[in-house]
Design a protein around this nucleic acid. Structure first.
Lengths: 115, 115
DNA sequence: TTGACATTCAAGTGATTACTTGAATAATGG
DNA sequence: CCATTATTCAAGTAATCACTTGAATGTCAA
């Protein structure tokens, strides 16, 4: 029985698991934006958006830096890459196993015919 | 103002955003398991694990098929691949933009020296 | 300085979620 | 058939989460 696991990646996934934050990330992939820009995309208050940015920031997915009286929000590629890498590694392992299973089945097939 | 976005990917991310489910997926990447096997890894009841499997299944990340009186839980590579693909596409777009920005900066640098 | 704008801080509320216990269903072995 | 094992169904509860309103902070422009 294990208590639980690393929450560095789960935080990333949890952050992307909300439709607002997902859309924010998608938007930021097109280019940086201010908090106000992002808030204009949704039917929620800027405070709400700011809170969503808090969780994206805690997940390492975005960064905010002051710029005059606004704040420039940028997407951070590293967190995105790490999470994608984790998923791809698991997916690849599965595909490999399937490939090996296919080989075994093909062998059995051939064996069956040869008899 | 947009209401929100596709929840097909957000469901996948939300599913992986929980430490228990994350660990389950990690475990299933090593090979299939029964619900009981998975429950033995955590300090929660099998019912709890079964509920976690519900959300993983709704996200398309795992499938369950009866096998005698147990149930074999398998990881589904497709959902994993789609989510990873979405992330990678965004990451790549950012890297490209950075590369272009670096070019511009390098040009300015050269220009500055040449003068 | 003052007034408007952009953003965050703080606290409250309703909805969602993770988990529990208890009961139902289904397959196996004696 | 009956007891046992594996899993799900159902309902309740406590914690977390998304969102709101109201107030504070900081920056620009007149």
């Amino acid at each position: 029985m294990i208590g639980s696991a690393p929450q560095v990646l789960t935080r990333t996934f949890a952050a992307l698991g909300d439709p607002v934050r997902f859309t924010v990330v998608q938007r930021l992939a097109e280019g940086d934006a201010t908090v106000g820009d992002l808030a204009a995309m949704f039917d929620i208050t800027v405070q709400g958006v700011s809170q969503h940015l808090d969780v994206l920031e805690r997940a390492g997915l975005v960064s905010r830096h002051k710029e005059g009286r606004t704040r420039r929000v940028s997407l951070e590629p590293a967190a995105l890459g790490e999470a994608a890498g984790w998923m791809e590694a698991r997916r690849r392992r599965l595909e490999e196993r399937y490939a090996r299973l296919d080989d075994v089945l093909a062998d059995m097939e051939r064996e069956g015919e040869g008899r």
